[in-house]
């Protein structure tokens, strides 16, 4: 599909064991890039053999720099960084604990900052590079009872713009993808909380102009484009991939 678009690229994707991250890993591989990814557990059995795996927990403040160094050593350099690893806690501010804050901000915010900070000197030395952060529509609009998650994604959007502005002169491009409802295990867990999961799913479906939920591949295709030469003039942007969900009013009378 993307044959050769990322040929010669050397990509590190966090959280690529499953879900959106895994789709990005496979799309990058298909597009010709050498890819390394990571996760908290052991290497998944079904991960393609030529994809490098590092067991790492990006919530550990010491992990990120080592991860970038490992990718440089293993891939012989680094030209693409995808910050995909993320966690979600479904609580309001009133219910959130300090431990929730440390978890959500540690993974969704601090790790993104640390990964970018570690990659920037490598990119600078190589004459450039591309960062693709996974933000969220929830960083711009509030999902109820997701306060810290929403805030962490707004951080990602702001950091994306800052890196683009501060490091553009070094040939670094930095963009974010803001997925809507992508059918991953995370989304299925959200439906499972509903009184009637099937009805909730049907209701959610009606709110998508595209007539379907997102798939990890939808995000992966955007990530290929943003990392590749066709997006050479695109930087500092947060690109929404949500099947039209946020183009429509939150009050969608057709659904009532």
């Amino acid at each position: 599909m993307h044959v050769g678009v990322l040929a010669g690229g050397k990509a590190l994707v966090t959280g690529g064991g499953r879900g959106i991250g895994r789709a990005v890993v496979e799309a990058y591989r298909d597009a010709g890039a050498a890819v390394m990814t990571c996760g908290r557990g052991a290497r998944p059995d079904d991960l393609p053999e030529d994809v490098a795996w590092a067991q790492a927990d990006v919530s550990d403040p010491r992990a990120c720099e080592a991860l970038v160094a490992a990718a440089v050593a293993r891939l012989g350099g680094l030209s693409i960084l995808v910050n995909n690893a993320g966690v979600q806690v479904e609580k309001t501010v009133a219910d959130s604990t300090d431990a929730d804050w440390d978890l959500v901000m540690g993974v969704n915010a601090r790790a993104v900052f640390q990964m970018c900070r570690a990659a920037l000197p490598v990119f600078r030395q190589a004459g450039g590079g591309a960062i693709v952060n996974i933000g969220s529509i929830s960083g711009d609009l509030a999902d109820p009872s997701m306060a810290l998650y929403n805030a962490s994604k707004a951080f990602v959007h702001g950091l994306t713009r800052s890196i683009a502005v501060d490091h553009g002169a070094d040939g670094v491009r930095c963009n974010a993808i803001c997925p809507g409802w992508i059918l991953t295990e995370m989304a299925d867990a959200a439906f499972a909380l509903a009184r009637d999961p099937e009805a909730a799913k049907a209701d959610a479906l009606k709110r998508h102009a595209a007539g379907r939920f997102g798939r990890p591949e939808d995000v992966a295709r955007a990530a290929v484009w943003l990392a590749g030469p066709d997006a050479d003039f695109v930087t500092g942007r947060c690109i929404t991939v949500d099947g039209g969900l946020t183009a429509a009013s939150p009050l969608n009378p057709g659904v009532f």
Partner: peptide, 11 residues
Amino acid sequence: GLSAQVQQMRL
């Protein structure tokens, strides 16, 4: 505050 939200699914 209507447009501050993501579309409200009925869960």
